[in-house]
Simulated assay, not measured.
Amino acid sequence: MAVQTKSSTYVNLVNMTATQISDPISGTIVTVQAAMKSYSMVKANTELGDTFHAAGSGLHLIYEALSSVKSRLPPEISNASLKLLDSCKAGATSSEAVFKEVSQAPSDTRLQSYTAFIKEGGRPNLVETLVGGLMKEICLLAEGCAVEVDLTALRRASDELEKMEPSVPIEQHKSDDSFSNSGSGSQYNSTGGTQNNATGNGKQFFGATFQGAVSFS
């Protein structure tokens, strides 16, 4: 029977918590550059609004931050940091897809194209959501890898994006109304407007106006 020594156990633990990597960020940086290129094609379009352009302008901060992290990233990182790298890659890819979609639309229909894209995918596809989320993940990555880079501007931009109005209004869809009463007695439900309830015998008058004397029997 094989005996696992203390030293071999330590090696296994290290392998579980750290991953040897060669160049995990370059692909993400290239994707961010592609998003920047797409945004540069629409940055003069005022119809897209302040929030859209704030997110687009933030791509440059993301590029600079990723470049700084790349130059200081240790050869071994934890599995948690590796997951953050994967998440950053996914966020950059989604961001690039949205900016590319808008840039490829005719100049006079770019807002409509962006609006249609958001209505299909929902709030997660808003550029401020994607870019702001990517900014936060880069900050977490730098902290997790103990990389000393100045991310003040990135954090400030992320906070500002959170405070801005949505780049496209998001409708709040109500779920189908459903009511159930498994007990005894009356149940009163209203999905809006005025609710009038008659709990006893006799007639009930809603908003009625009587001229002269009125008697009820």
Results as ranks from 00 to 15, higher is better:
residue 22 S to M: 10
residue 80 A to L: 13
residue 80 A to K: 12
residue 111 L to W: 07
residue 115 T to K: 07
residue 160 E to D: 14
residue 90 A to H: 06
residue 212 G to P: 06
residue 113 S to N: 09
residue 187 Q to T: 14
residue 109 T to P: 02
residue 54 A to L: 04
residue 105 A to I: 01
residue 21 I to T: 07
residue 18 A to D: 03
residue 109 T to C: 02
residue 12 N to L: 09
residue 172 Q to L: 05
residue 56 G to F: 02
residue 145 C to M: 07
residue 56 G to D: 01
residue 149 V to C: 06
residue 146 A to V: 12
residue 80 A to R: 09
residue 206 F to H: 14
residue 110 R to K: 06
residue 207 G to F: 13
residue 131 V to T: 11
residue 80 A to G: 03
residue 48 L to D: 02
residue 56 G to L: 04
residue 172 Q to W: 00
residue 124 P to K: 08
residue 71 S to W: 00
residue 191 T to K: 15
residue 145 C to A: 14
residue 193 G to V: 10
residue 66 L to S: 03
residue 73 L to R: 07
residue 121 G to L: 04
residue 203 K to Q: 04
residue 125 N to W: 06
residue 147 V to L: 08
residue 84 L to E: 10
residue 106 P to D: 12
residue 125 N to R: 10
residue 144 G to W: 04
residue 192 G to P: 11
residue 191 T to P: 04
residue 178 S to R: 11
residue 156 R to E: 11
residue 69 V to G: 02
residue 77 I to K: 03
residue 129 T to I: 14
residue 209 T to A: 11
residue 128 E to C: 08
residue 38 S to Y: 08
residue 151 L to C: 09
residue 60 H to L: 13
residue 75 P to L: 06
residue 128 E to Y: 05
residue 3 V to Q: 02
residue 35 A to Y: 11
residue 54 A to C: 00
residue 185 G to W: 03
residue 107 S to M: 09
residue 6 K to G: 00
residue 14 V to Y: 06
residue 204 Q to A: 09
residue 187 Q to S: 13
residue 205 F to L: 12
residue 127 V to L: 15
residue 91 G to N: 07
residue 99 F to N: 09
residue 84 L to N: 07
residue 8 S to G: 00
residue 205 F to G: 01
residue 65 A to C: 03
residue 177 D to L: 13
residue 16 M to A: 10
residue 26 S to R: 06
residue 200 G to A: 14
residue 153 A to N: 10
residue 127 V to W: 05
residue 200 G to Q: 09
residue 69 V to W: 04
residue 27 G to F: 05
residue 54 A to Q: 10
residue 199 T to N: 10
residue 128 E to K: 13
residue 154 L to K: 05
residue 72 R to G: 06
residue 85 L to N: 11
residue 165 E to K: 15
residue 143 E to I: 07
residue 30 V to C: 00
residue 183 G to N: 08
residue 104 Q to G: 08
residue 193 G to H: 11
residue 211 Q to L: 11
residue 90 A to K: 14
residue 98 V to I: 14
residue 74 P to K: 05
residue 107 S to E: 13
residue 150 D to L: 07
residue 14 V to F: 12
residue 114 Y to F: 09
residue 145 C to D: 03
residue 24 P to W: 03
residue 179 F to T: 14
residue 147 V to D: 13
residue 144 G to Y: 06
residue 50 D to I: 06
residue 54 A to V: 00
residue 13 L to S: 10
residue 54 A to E: 07
residue 126 L to I: 12
residue 40 S to L: 02
residue 12 N to V: 03
residue 62 I to D: 04
residue 55 A to M: 00
residue 65 A to W: 01
